[in-house]
Design a protein around this nucleic acid. Structure first.
Length: 645
DNA sequence: AAGCTCTGCTTTTTT
DNA sequence: AGCAGAGCTT
């Protein structure tokens, strides 16, 4: 791998701590990988180099690139997400971290539990924040490491009384969590960080474990994650790579300004810069640079293309989202016919929901694709039904799973289930519970049989799923009228499970790293179009990128309008999206919405995008883009132009 | 207490 | 389109 001078300087940095400011496409991943290679070359034990990322995708990519460079010893370099890394130590030393056994719950379970807590504290009160909002408050406060009440007082409009009530709901939520031995995503980081700062033993153990800590996407670290880094560094040296213009995780407590305070937080730290862009053509960068220049914040970023000129980005304006989806699909098919592989194309979307019509068009036209960031396979109702059975066996204290499992059966509703759960929680093991259930529900023998059946093959995850599916099919068939379609997912699940050592490990892997249906079913296919949310796409690239939904109301998103910080983050989201493209960039959008649901808070722009609605591209200089007017608007009755001229 | 039907509301982004 | 809640029947 060839490095340029600035990359080489970063990779071979010999001082203590360093922050590498790396613009989009400047070879950030290559530089981190080169850093690891360099460290091993000068004699650092690979096991003492820690590589932290924010997403599993990034971790996978990093490990892949590292394997290409140094072969099998890449496996010995600990690489993972913050969550993964922390969880590993909570499991290894449960006593040191004072956590015992734990069950990780996903956002759905969190919301379910929050709903119970909310109902318990406030009863019915439509004006009171919904459970999703409460969960967001809770998570944000913890990720920024501040007391909830303080955060609420400062950042929301709630009065003192409301704050009190919200706090008590959150307290109730916490209590319920402990009862079931549940740990949500934030708990993983929080527990680790707390012990790291509270217990001298933990701190000494962790600080002596690594010589170098390499952090990707530093601009996305929130205060909680910083506590983790700060607790583990020194003597371990920090090598942090980031770009303030690509900070798009403020909703999770990250503040892009933190990148700038690195030198204040870490005494003697140096700052290096990577500015040469290797990914895109100059035209793509010109538009991206222009977008940042429009900001009131001085990003002071001007990416230069090492590759030189190419094709201007194309603005395509369609009549509605179906037309947009069709346009993208037919353009893809045209290119594929012309010999371009599917894998050269990436479709970027602001939200998973906005990608629905495009996904439909891809399916309709048999275009192979994988959707990253979309509805997760394990979140679909029928899969959760089935998994609830595995969960109760894995952790008999898992009340949410019991509730789901028991209420699946006829004549068992919430009330009955709750009484039953109350009784079975006092029992010593799953064996006793299943005997109790067999006795309790004689009219539904399958309820208990399913449990015993799964137990007979518990050490073979894929067989367990098979057994559970067999036992529960009659039940699920009745519950879902599109069962034929849904039952395929359970087969998929069985295939996925085959790769795992134990049911517990299988469940946990997919709680922490959910997988979409299209990803799971296309695991062995590699020529695919990638449909991806902008947030998931950070760090990736493709020769041809379609950015869908580029229209007023999306960039900036309606929910951010009026809040300068949020609007600026939206600008960065669009910037990240644009800078994924290597050769060609299409920006598609519609100015009118066609019968689609438009939430009342953004009704005002329904009639057209011209009005006062802020829109980042509303005055894009014409010389920076091509318009589709030149491409496809030949009216049907226009005079024919002879090719002889 | 369970289960059915009807109505109204919802959709940002991730671990 | 799918889900939660209300209100009704079994």
């Amino acid at each position: 791998m060839e490095l340029n001078a600035e990359q080489k300087r970063a990779a071979e940095f010999a001082g203590d701590d360093v922050l590498v400011l790396a613009g989009a496409g400047t070879g950030k991943t290559s530089t981190i990988v080169a850093r690891v290679v360099h460290l091993t070359k000068i004699g650092v034990d690979p096991r003492r180099i820690l590589l932290l990322t924010f997403t599993r995708r990034a971790a996978r990519e990093m490990r892949h690139r590292l394997t290409q460079q140094i072969g099998s010893s890449a496996k010995t370099v600990p690489t993972g997400t913050f969550h993964n890394f922390c969880l590993q130590y909570l499991r290894r030393w449960p006593d040191l971290f004072e956590c015992g056994s734990l069950t990780i719950i996903d956002r759905d379970d969190q919301l379910q539990l929050m709903k119970l807590a909310r109902a318990n504290v406030v009863g019915k009160d439509a004006a009171f924040p919904k459970s999703a909002e409460l969960a967001n408050y809770y998570s944000y406060a913890r990720n920024t490491n501040r007391p909830v009440a303080e955060y609420l007082a400062e950042f929301t409009d709630h009065d003192e009384d409301a704050i009190k009530r919200i706090s008590s709901v959150l307290q109730d939520y916490t209590k319920r969590k402990h009862e079931c031995r549940y740990f949500d995503y934030d708990d993983i980081l929080h527990l680790f960080a707390r012990q790291l700062h509270r217990s001298r033993i933990v701190r000494e153990k962790m600080q002596s474990r690594y010589d170098h800590i390499l952090v990707d996407e530093m601009q996305d670290t929130n205060p909680l994650q910083w506590l983790i880094l700060d607790g583990m560094r020194d003597p371990a040296k920090l090598f942090c790579v980031g770009d303030d213009a690509q900070s798009i995780y403020a909703f999770r407590g990250a503040d892009f300004r933190n990148v700038h305070s690195f030198t204040e937080r870490v005494a003697g730290a140096q700052v290096l810069k990577l500015e040469q862009n290797y990914r895109s053509t100059q035209e793509i960068l010109d538009l991206s640079n222009w977008l940042l220049d429009q900001s009131s914040l001085g990003y002071d970023k001007h990416l230069r293309a090492a590759r030189g000129p190419g094709i201007k980005p194309v603005l395509v304006e369609l009549d509605g989202d179906f037309e947009e989806a069709d346009w993208v699909a037919s353009d893809l098919m045209q290119r594929h016919e012309d010999g371009d592989p599917w894998r050269d194309h990436m479709i970027l979307t602001r939200s998973a929901w906005a990608a629905r019509s495009v996904e439909a068009a891809l399916i309709e036209n048999d275009i192979p694709y994988r959707f990253i960031g979309g509805t997760q396979l394990l979140q679909s109702a029928h899969v959760k039904d089935l998994l609830s059975l595995l969960r109760v066996i894995d952790n008999p204290a898992d009340q949410l799973a019991w509730m789901r499992y028991l209420t699946l059966w006829p004549r068992i509703g919430e009330k009955t289930a709750a009484t039953t759960i109350g009784k079975l929680l006092t029992m010593p093991n799953i064996k006793a519970i299943s005997e109790f259930l067999a006795d309790q529900y004689k009219t539904n023998p399958r309820l208990a049989e399913s449990i015993t059946e799964c137990l007979t093959c518990w050490d073979r995850p894929s067989d367990v799923i098979g057994a559970a599916t067999d036992k529960m099919t009659p039940l699920l068939e009745k519950k879902y009228d599109d069962w034929d379609r849904r039952s395929k997912d359970l087969k998929l699940l069985q295939r996925l499970a085959a790769k795992h050592q134990s049911v517990g490990e299988f469940l946990e892997t997919y709680t922490l790293d959910p997988i979409t249906e299209s990803e799971a079913s296309n695991e062995d296919v590699d020529d695919l179009v990638t449909l991806i949310t902008v947030h998931s796409a950070k760090g990736t690239e493709a020769p041809v990128c379609y950015l869908i939904g580029v229209q007023p109301g999306n960039y900036p998103h309606v929910r951010s309008i009026g809040d300068d910080d949020k609007e600026e983050e939206e600008r960065r989201v669009l910037y990240v999206a644009m800078t994924r493209a290597q050769n060609e960039l299409f920006l598609t959008g519609t100015l009118r919405s066609h019968g689609a649901y438009v939430p009342h808070h953004n009704r005002f722009y329904q009639s057209g995008g011209s009005s006062s609605q802020p829109y980042f591209l509303s005055d894009v200089p014409p010389e920076l883009v091509q318009s589709d007017l030149d491409i496809d608007t030949d009216p049907f009755d226009a005079p024919i132009t002879s090719f002889r001229g």
